[in-house]
Simulated scan of single mutants.
Amino acid sequence: MPMEDEVSAHAPDVDDPAGRPRLLVWQDELNASPGYHAIALMDYIRRIGYVFQGNVAQYNALVAQVQDPTHVLAAFDISNPRAHDELLSEVERLLHNVLMALSTRIDQQRVFLKEHFSTDTALTAEYSARIKSDFDGYAPAAFLRGLRNYLTHHRLPVAQSRQTFSKQSFSVTFVLLRQPLLEWSRWNSDTRGWLAAQDDELEIVPMVDSYARIAGGFDKWLHERINLKYAAAIREYEEAADAFNREWDQAFGL
């Protein structure tokens, strides 16, 4: 990626020819510096991940909420089936958001790498290797990506709740029925084979949770890898920014 000229840690001595105050000239130089650009790249990776992780957090919050019998028992009242249908509708809405964000994260990261790091063969090779080791090693990852296509282009997956309770405990989870999923013709052969080998009810909650943990670790690695690549430029920017802030505070009596 092309890098701009280095920026000094000291303010310009004079205003620019257009008469702009030197602090604004200095601020523009800082914002055009390689270090500032590198920090912006890392922030973008964080934001891509946040969209996905935020949707997963909402999904998990509902799962946590229904573990409270006082909150959820009304949804299992057989005299009021609509309450249970509404619960499943909310589960499906949140799962939809998770899967859309999952796909968005993948697509946007690919575009990001191509746009900013296509000439960095070392980083792109590490990126590809990490995808293979982190995601290809988790079998449900391909299923979740395919489930997004199933949901988008075919139908909502058939979701059900499953309750486990005794005198001492109560728990609720959500499952997808395998057979309706297998009726879709557009699974690739590997995913179809994996799906056919699963139980009749797929426990979707731990799949989403595990994928989110893997994605979070991957995004943290990418963030840190970009930081390593531009460590010197970021350090120079931070030193210059500290000097700018001191002069800004002095100028305005802060």
Rank of each mutant, 00 (worst) to 15 (best):
M1H: 07
H116T: 01
F135Q: 07
W194A: 09
V14M: 05
P17N: 08
S118D: 07
R47Y: 01
Q198W: 06
V7Y: 05
L144F: 03
K167T: 12
S210Q: 14
T164P: 02
F218N: 15
Y138C: 01
L228W: 04
L151H: 11
D77R: 04
T119K: 15
H154V: 03
L123K: 06
S8P: 03
V208M: 10
S210K: 15
A122T: 10
F252H: 11
Y138T: 04
L87K: 00
F112D: 03
Q179S: 07
I131S: 13
Q53L: 14
K220Y: 03
A83S: 12
G217R: 05
G146E: 05
A241Q: 12
A38N: 03
I39G: 05
I131G: 13
V111H: 14
Y36F: 15
S89W: 10
A215M: 08
A74H: 13
A212T: 04
R148V: 08
L102D: 11
R20C: 02
L95T: 10
F52I: 02
A196I: 01
V66Q: 01
A122R: 11
R20I: 06
E115V: 13
L147A: 08
D136C: 10
M42S: 02
A129Q: 10
L195A: 08
D107I: 00
D77E: 11
V111A: 15
T191K: 12
Q53D: 11
F174K: 01
M42C: 04
V25L: 11
D242Q: 09
L222H: 00
R46H: 09
E236P: 01
Q27Y: 07
A212W: 04
E90I: 04
V175H: 08
L144A: 05
V175R: 10
I226S: 02
D190F: 00
A32Q: 12
M207C: 06
T191V: 15
A32G: 13
N227W: 09
V14A: 08
E92V: 02
E126N: 15
R22I: 05
S169M: 00
V56R: 04
K132T: 07
A241F: 07
L156M: 14
Q179K: 09
E236Q: 15
E247W: 08
L102F: 11
W187F: 02
G49I: 00
R22G: 02
L222G: 00
A57H: 14
K229S: 06
S171E: 09
H223G: 04
F174L: 06
Q65K: 14
P180H: 10
Q168W: 03
E115H: 13
L99F: 04
P81L: 11
R186W: 01
L95W: 02
D219E: 13
A101C: 08
S103E: 11
G35C: 07
K114W: 11
G217C: 02
L123I: 05
